[in-house]
């Protein structure tokens, strides 16, 4: 049994300790908002926060999460987190999503990035590109992601 703290709730997960967090979320806890894209930390679709830091849940075993706080898209965009709410609002305002599949990971990376900035700081395009470089999108929403992250930063200032 591995104890996982996800979105403020504690779960006992009966799975091999090497099981990636992604599959514990999706297949054991039913939290399917976190997406499977590559299984090799190459695309960022599975991004969640562990103690506030963005991680690739497809390659991070549940054994590494014991005693740590996991935050997923379900808690980031439910209105309880001001930064997540600002990112969600900016994503909707800019109609960022096309197919939408990569967007959970994009939003988690953007949220972690904005939380890492000093209060009121406004990122440059280069800052945003660097922070979001690990998240692939095949539909071509990158330009809107740039605009939405900048917009969310302004809203949080």
């Amino acid at each position: 049994m591995t104890t996982l703290q996800v979105n403020g709730r504690t779960h006992s997960v009966d799975a091999d300790p090497g099981t990636p967090i992604l599959w514990a979320l999706r297949d054991t806890l039913g939290l399917t908002g976190t997406k499977f894209g590559c299984g090799a930390a190459l695309c960022g679709a599975c991004t969640v926060l562990m103690d506030g830091q963005p991680i690739r849940s497809c390659v991070t075993p549940i054994s590494a999460a014991e005693g740590k706080r996991i935050t997923t898209i379900e808690a980031t965009a439910d209105g309880s987190d001001p930064v997540g709410s600002a990112v969600h609002a900016a994503w909707v305002k800019h109609d960022v999503a096309q197919c939408g599949y990569c967007q959970s990971g994009q939003i988690m990376s953007a949220t972690a990035f904005l939380k890492s900035l000093p209060r009121g700081a406004q990122p440059t395009v280069a800052d945003i590109d660097a922070a979001m470089a690990g998240n692939l999108c095949r539909c071509g929403t990158y330009a809107r992601i740039r605009a939405a992250v900048a917009d969310a930063a302004r809203a949080l200032a």
Binding site: K35, A77, W91
Partner: peptide, 19 residues
Amino acid sequence: TSRLDARAKSSGRQDFGLD
């Protein structure tokens, strides 16, 4: 016009075939 699926796709609530 904004997409009808914009909110669901910006919150992890949109289900796909894999879900």
